[in-house]
């Protein structure tokens, strides 16, 4: 009996850990999809971009904490380019993302010097989970606490940003682009900025995941958009009546819930290569559920 309990505890801990790491990915999707109203597919490339950059930097002895802002900036640069393709060259939003995602696949391999996976297993290669901060906490929960600190810090900074004039402009741009122009602001620049922020967050998530799993894999990014978007929609749907929670909080909860669902499905005995199928099926379920709830809300009104 204690064995089962132990397994369950271990499982819920790893669900929390990975769910929280994916929460940053979900926050990125929240920015592009929900705030900016831009279906951005470049995230499938920027998530492993964050991982690749991190794996290479750590192997070269760069401080693992420093990898976080560097990954963010790399992702932001990629997002910015997606924005430029869309705004300056007038390519549709969907295609701009697909172009960027495709290009990034090679870019990620270039960064990893051609290898499709890199490992940062050696204890000599510092990870944020093995550093001095990790030593402060009891070893069992140190990973979880470090992830929690990172996610909480990012969330708080993001919430602060959304209250600034610049952040509010992002919100306006997604809801009413004409108003951005009417306020004498270049809506193209706002979109580029939003995409940079979104992909920066996604790459940051990739960076944390790389340090958590001790590895980078070029295929890791496939389905990032679906995972992130599913988390956003779950968070907003399941918790849509909870008025006192901020959207960002709901998205973080959504990510943990979604990851838990995947974990449960896998633990019901499905082999790991069913993963992407489960991801897609769960997302479809959520979309159907979401449409039902939204319909219900409309009929109420």
């Amino acid at each position: 009996m204690p064995n089962i309990l132990n397994t369950a505890l271990n499982m819920s801990q790893s669900v929390l850990e990975q769910g929280l790491i994916y929460a940053l990915l979900a926050l990125g999707l929240y920015v592009s999809y929900s705030v900016l109203n831009f279906p951005d597919l470049s995230v499938d490339g920027t998530f492993p971009l964050g991982s690749a950059v991190t794996a290479v930097l750590i192997a070269r002895g760069v401080n693992p904490w420093l990898c976080l802002p560097i990954s963010f900036l790399c992702g932001a640069a990629a997002g910015m380019i997606t924005g430029v393709i869309h705004v300056k060259f007038r390519v549709t939003n969907l295609l701009s993302g697909i172009l960027m995602m495709t290009a990034l696949y090679s870019v990620n391999l270039i960064i990893s010097n051609g290898s499709s996976s890199l490992f940062i297993m050696s204890p000599a290669m510092g990870k944020i989970f093995t550093g001095r901060l990790a030593g402060v906490f009891p070893p069992v929960v140190s990973k979880l606490l470090i992830i929690l600190i990172c996610v909480a810090a990012v969330k708080l900074l993001f919430d602060l940003f959304m209250k600034t004039k610049c952040g509010m402009m992002l919100m306006v741009c997604g809801a009413n682009e004409q108003m951005v122009k009417s306020l004498s602001v270049d809506s193209g620049k706002i979109k580029m900025l939003g995409l940079a922020l979104a992909n920066g967050l996604v790459a940051l998530s990739g960076c944390l995941m790389c340090q958590y799993k001790y590895s980078f894999n070029v295929g890791d990014g496939t389905g990032s958009m679906v995972i992130g978007l599913a988390s956003v929609i779950i968070g907003m749907t399941v918790l849509h009546k909870v008025k006192f929670l901020k959207n960002t909080t709901k998205v973080i909860f959504g990510s943990v819930i979604y990851y838990a669902c995947i974990k449960i499905a896998l633990n019901l005995g499905l082999p790991p290569h069913f993963l992407k199928l489960i991801i897609a099926a769960l997302f479809l379920l959520m979309l159907i559920f979401n449409n039902k709830i939204l319909k219900g809300v409309k009929e109420d009104a």
Binding site: F161, T164, K165, C166, G167, M169, L183
Partner: peptide, 8 residues
């Protein structure tokens, strides 16, 4: 300029 000062 719509910068990083409080929006409201």
């Amino acid at each position: 300029f719509y910068g990083l000062t409080p929006g409201v």
